[in-house]
Simulated assay, not measured.
Amino acid sequence: MAHATVDEVLGALKDVDFPADKTQLLEAARSAGAPGEVISALRGIPPETYTNRDDIVHSIRTDPDSDLGHTPAERAEQAREGGKPGLSQHLREVPKTPVEEELDR
């Protein structure tokens, strides 16, 4: 299965006015003639309102090889911080609250 790259997704969305929701992003990509991989990547994002291109980049699934130019530190930072706040919380390590710590005793 082919994956979209970050550059392909952002290229298809170059004329988008922000903030924009998922439907507006899909419409803009289709009208820009984006390939199927880009449309599929945008279909997979959460139905949120995106305030800028960085929000989109953090929410899409891209080509696994698209981070080959990143240093190990940059990849680790991306893994730690995850995507847009509030998304994929189950993948983040969050410190326990004092109540949770007390209940674990």
Rank of each mutant, 00 (worst) to 15 (best):
D55I: 10
D63L: 01
Y50C: 13
G36V: 06
T49N: 11
P47I: 03
D55N: 14
R43N: 15
G44P: 11
R61D: 13
S40T: 07
G69S: 10
H70L: 15
R53V: 13
Y50P: 13
I45D: 08
T49A: 13
G44S: 11
H70K: 15
I60T: 03
E37A: 08
D63K: 02
H70C: 15
D54P: 00
G69L: 09
P47Q: 06
I56Y: 04
G69Y: 09
E48D: 14
R53D: 12
D63G: 02
L42W: 03
P47T: 02
I45S: 01
S40C: 06
A41G: 03
R61T: 11
R53G: 12
T51G: 10
P46C: 07
R61W: 07
R61F: 03
T51C: 13
L68S: 12
P64W: 06
A41H: 01
R61I: 11
S40Q: 12
R61M: 10
R53F: 06
V57C: 04
N52E: 12
V57W: 01
H70R: 15
I39V: 15
D63A: 00
L68Y: 11
R43W: 10
S66N: 11
I56A: 06
D54H: 03
S59L: 13
L68T: 09
D67I: 05
I39A: 06
G36D: 13
I39C: 04
T62R: 09
R43M: 13
I60P: 03
Y50D: 05
V38M: 00
P46D: 14
V57I: 04
I60R: 01
E48F: 15
I39Q: 09
D65I: 02
P64S: 03
H58Y: 11
D65R: 04
P64Y: 07
S59W: 06
P47L: 02
L42C: 05
E48N: 14
G69H: 13
P47R: 01
D55V: 04
I45A: 05
Y50S: 13
V38A: 00
V38D: 00
E37Q: 01
I60H: 01
V38Y: 01
D63H: 00
D63C: 02
L68V: 06
E37L: 00
D55M: 12
N52P: 14
T51N: 11
S59G: 09
L42S: 08
P46L: 15
R43I: 06
A41N: 01
I45G: 05
L68G: 12
L68N: 12
P46K: 14
D67F: 04
E48W: 12
H70Q: 15
R61Y: 02
P47V: 04
L42F: 02
G69I: 10
D55Q: 07
N52S: 05
I56W: 00
D55A: 13
I45M: 10
H70A: 15
D55K: 10
P64H: 04
I56D: 04
A41F: 04
D67M: 05
S66F: 03
N52I: 07
D67K: 06
D67W: 05
G44R: 11
N52D: 15
D54I: 13
R43S: 10
L42N: 06
